[in-house]
Design a protein around this nucleic acid. Sequence first.
DNA 1: TATGAATGAGGGTTCATTCAT
DNA 2: CATGAATGAACCCTCATTCAT
Lengths: 233, 233, 233, 233
Amino acid sequence: MSTESKVQSCEPTKRRGRPVGAGIDPAKRQKIMEGAHRVFHDFGFDTASMQQIAQTAGVSKGTLYVYFANKEDLFEALVDSQRELMFGDLKKVAETAPTLEQGLLDYGMLFTRKVLSDNGITAQRVLLGVVDRQPELGLQFYERGPARGHKLLQTLLDRFNKLEACDIADTGLAAYQFAELCLAQNYRQRLFGWQPEATSEDDISKVVNAAVSLFMKAYAFVRPETGIKTATE
Amino acid sequence: MSTESKVQSCEPTKRRGRPVGAGIDPAKRQKIMEGAHRVFHDFGFDTASMQQIAQTAGVSKGTLYVYFANKEDLFEALVDSQRELMFGDLKKVAETAPTLEQGLLDYGMLFTRKVLSDNGITAQRVLLGVVDRQPELGLQFYERGPARGHKLLQTLLDRFNKLEACDIADTGLAAYQFAELCLAQNYRQRLFGWQPEATSEDDISKVVNAAVSLFMKAYAFVRPETGIKTATE
Amino acid sequence: MSTESKVQSCEPTKRRGRPVGAGIDPAKRQKIMEGAHRVFHDFGFDTASMQQIAQTAGVSKGTLYVYFANKEDLFEALVDSQRELMFGDLKKVAETAPTLEQGLLDYGMLFTRKVLSDNGITAQRVLLGVVDRQPELGLQFYERGPARGHKLLQTLLDRFNKLEACDIADTGLAAYQFAELCLAQNYRQRLFGWQPEATSEDDISKVVNAAVSLFMKAYAFVRPETGIKTATE
Amino acid sequence: MSTESKVQSCEPTKRRGRPVGAGIDPAKRQKIMEGAHRVFHDFGFDTASMQQIAQTAGVSKGTLYVYFANKEDLFEALVDSQRELMFGDLKKVAETAPTLEQGLLDYGMLFTRKVLSDNGITAQRVLLGVVDRQPELGLQFYERGPARGHKLLQTLLDRFNKLEACDIADTGLAAYQFAELCLAQNYRQRLFGWQPEATSEDDISKVVNAAVSLFMKAYAFVRPETGIKTATE
DNA sequence: TATGAATGAGGGTTCATTCAT
DNA sequence: CATGAATGAACCCTCATTCAT
């Protein structure tokens, strides 16, 4: 969210004609979103109050409605920016990996760190609490977030498939599998609050390494020197 | 009153005649929980109203409070029953599996079906929306649900480890990995609403089979007739 | 209240036809009133709940309505019994006093003790909280309580007026004055909770003695041996 | 959001943006208090509803909470203002009285009028109904009201004691006695609703005069020209 | 007669949103 | 544009009373 002020600035609100020429000052918009993040984080969507968001952001309640049509709008903008933060820089990793193993490792570490981060977990939690009532929000988040990440990973696998570094029949499924292996143990523990603190870098590293190892063992050609390759499926 | 008699205490306490676990009629209790399930499902914890729940369940608002102390209590009871439904019958599968492969397959199918079921997903979603403010609820759910499932799976792996059907250095992590592989692709899609319909039995089967296959390839001894075993790690 | 079970037993309730043959068992009636006293005492009329009264009395909520038509009825019965307790035994003191001074002293002590007692103060407080909405209750209490006490005292003064032990032009007012002098300092302090503990016997004695002394000085003939009398007014 | 910025604290606290003493418009505040006065008067604290108060005052229920944190707060403000009204201007009377008799008369009339006024009686009644559950309210009222009045009266007596206009051993008790004498007959009658109408000026005058007379007779030096003084005690 | 589960109106309070300044 | 006082619907929960057993 910190790097993001003009993204929404031109979506002129949806409900009623009120704030048509809304959202002039990007800095104020930013301030509001920071306050909102904090409050949504601490209280969840329903329990967060616009009053408190206004206070936390240091603006008046009325100003909130100048920049955002309503509570949901504000929340949506927040989800957008969070998502961007989480999946933004996976792209270059996926596209520049020199070897499959290295690519998986780098991608896995980056991805896992983001998904398990405090902000990431909280955002997902709050979002999930709203998804039943605001399905579009979940859809949008998933499509622009996890789905995009998945595509990148699949592309990576396709690339090395072509390079004959591995032999994966269903790169789509394989990509999901790898992602899930990276989150093993920690994702649901974090989500449900069983791990209250952010997962340590060491733990992440351990799991990601195990994921890469298991994945390579199952899908990659091994021991090129023996000339014998082991394909999957 | 000058003569005190043995009447009860009566200090100015809150929570006076509250229903301790009251509510005699199990059928009515069930009715309430079904109504509550529907409403919590459709609206989430905060937005669901007791009024609505009462209507849906076909009882009066007051009756709700005869059977449950408050909204949270009702929700907790709901989460409890959902959890039990989800993780209840994994036990026998894990303990009676004849072979590792069969055990993984059976466990995986059962587990995955439950976790991805409509009820399961909804319950998790609603719960996750509340976890930030009611951490105990999440803890309890995780401990009595996923954590218990994980223990069972680990026990299964340990058993076959001892039988030398496989060679898994860290059965704890491996159990997590297998579970996550079973949920690959579908879990987060379901959670975020990208898959609005319950995952089809075919899709589940496909993913679980792939999970077993990948897991076996990576961890199990293969083709005992060749005399050559491939260990992990 | 402890000594009082049959007083109300024949007032067959007022509202609706429900408990017509109500209130059979005097012991149970007594039990209820004791519980009610306790709860009304601790919570006041509005905040006291029938539920709690039932619990405290050790009977069921339904039973309450067998013995009393409703909450107000129960409260009224309670007020009646309290009043009786407070003003019951002033009569004999007023009628048998050998001298004015002794009569004032005895009457004053008895009266003051009762009015300032914990039960007395609480009962008055609770009653006063209801008086605006149930004026009859206050009227009845005052008439059957303080007014009766006042009459007794006036009779006492009249008696000694006739005996030429004193010369009081307006015995009605004088009686009020004496009563008020006895309550000086303590009554309002107790009422408003400034004196949380029951006024000590010593303090009561001190004030009552001062009241008698002041009253005698103002109204009584002094020093009969000098032959000089000092009249009031 | 990742960059924390200096937004405010926002720990999950209750009492968020509550109106500290908010409510800018004094006229509206006054309007509310008048409405509240009427409703509390007619119904007592517990039975008065905020809804009703809002209606009576001609504002919305929400507005009530802009000006007062809650029902108790509103009631307290009301009690405060009533008390001030009752005891506010006794001071100058006590400090400027030229003679003891005149001082007692003026003080007595003012004091009695206030205490027995409709507003005064009602306020006391309502307050007394709450005192058991909100002892601080009673304490505060007594301390800032009756206690202050008593101090003033005692000071008056002390002054004339020094001037040798009277000889009062215990001016504290004497002050209480005088106050009580002024309220004789009427105070409890008014409190319990036996005198539904405000006591007439004539009646007050009669009782206060009698009080002064009795008090002077008992405590003051009389007929300085005879050289014979009659002291108390 | 005694019970206590059931009722539903009504309580205090909160809060997203509006709008006059 | 920015403000925050005002609104009123809706929230969770309580409780006097009823009534089937």
